[in-house]
Every structure is written in C-alpha cells, then in structure tokens.
Amino acid sequence: MTKAKLDTAFQTVADAGEKAFVPYIMAGDGGLSGLNERIRFLADCGATAIELGLPFSDPVADGPTIQAAGIRALEAGTTVQTVLDEVAKEKASRTVPLVIMTYLNPVFAYGVEAFASACAEAGISGLILPDLPLEEEGMVTEALKKQDIALIRLVALTSTPARIQALAERAEGFLYAVTVAGTTGERASFVDQLGTHLKALTEVSKAPVLAGFGVSTPEHVRELSQYCDGVVVGSKIVDALHQGNRQQVKDLIASRK
C-alpha cells in the first residue's frame, strides 16, 4: 500500500485534469509536536503528497532557507526516530502520501534495512536522497523494494541523454526534475530551455515528472506545470511556515489548478 498510495494520488490529480503540488517541510522545524498538524494543514490546502525533510548536519544540495530550517530542527532535538514515531501516530487516518527527503548518512547510520521497515511502519511512501546518484543506488534499492517504498530519483539539467534515459526507465513514485543548476532555494527565473527539457522528460519517464528547486511563486507553479505533471516547492513553503504566513502557503498550493 505504501508506494501505491503515491501512484494513486498522482493518478487522481491527472484524472481531474489537474497538476500535482508537493510541498516540502522540514520535520522538527517549528517543533515536532506540530508536525502532524502541519501535514494535515498542507493536505487540506490541496497538497498531492508531502515531502518531509529529515535534517542532516551537512546538506550540500540545500540552499540557505532549508539549511537554516535543518539547523532549527536539529537544535530542537529532531532525530530520524522521533520523526517516524510522530508521523506513525496518524498513519491510519492520513490520506495524503508522505515522502521522506534526507541525505544518505542518517539512513546509513540507522541501518538501511531498518530504516526502510521503520518508514513502512510509519506509512511513508517514498524516499528522496539527493546525494545518492544512479551509480550508488544499489545501496538502498533492495531494502526499499522489499518494503514497497519508492526511490524517487532526481534528474538534473546537466544529466546527459543516456543518464536521462536510465533515470526515466527506473522512475518510480515520481521523477524529480531539478530545475536549476545548483541548490534548493528561491529563484527569480529559470533557463529558457527548461520547458523543452521538462516536456522531453515526461515523454520518457515511467512515472510523473515534477519540477522542483527554486519554484517559489504562483507564476512559477503555473508556468512549469504546463510542461510536466506538477511541482515541488520547498524553500518558499518552509519560509512561509516559519514566518507563520499560512495564507501564502494556501495561495501557492491553490495555484496548481
């Protein structure tokens, strides 16, 4: 049921002729006790799925906003275990699929097999590890498959055609199309060829293609969603929640339609 939950969510959106919107939040930022409430809030706003960041001390794929959120979460004592325990509490009633985004070391330290089964227990549908390229994914694929958890792969602007092909063929959950050369964080604009790139990805990918990194305004959401199956928004959501600006989150998610 874990991975299928994600597939169903994307299918439902597509059937309605709509686009997916996956917000990212940093687990433990703003207190772990508020985590389930934040998840419910985002689901109520219309999130297709939710990406849950587990903080790591050295997040090389992240820009300043998510780095700062990670530091706040770590300072609040957030650990892999406390996050999984917290989300497990509402597993039965939760309909929105959850995907975890973290770096390899916290997973490795927990134990890959143990992590996968703890994720399954907590009702997690997918895993994103930005420091795990195609060449190294053998480290987790077996364990995730066994627990029916999707390994969500990232494809970059710099990916060669052969790599794009390989990533697209393996795609499960969704294919995460990184829209900038660089780290997460708000951007004013994107490269001109982005639309063509995204469109080409949707043609080869076995799973929905979502654009993410730098997506931060309703205009971005509408613009990029034309070319693919939807967007992932991280820094802007993290920032708005940190500022207590929930209206901004609502408006952003509403712009997906």
Partner: peptide
C-alpha cells in the same frame, strides 16, 4: 564511492 547530487555526476 561517489555520493554526489546528479547535477555533479556528469
């Protein structure tokens, strides 16, 4: 190994 983001892999 080479545990880097896809952007760097090429």
């Amino acid at each position: 190994g080479r545990f880097v983001p896809e952007t760097l892999m090429p």
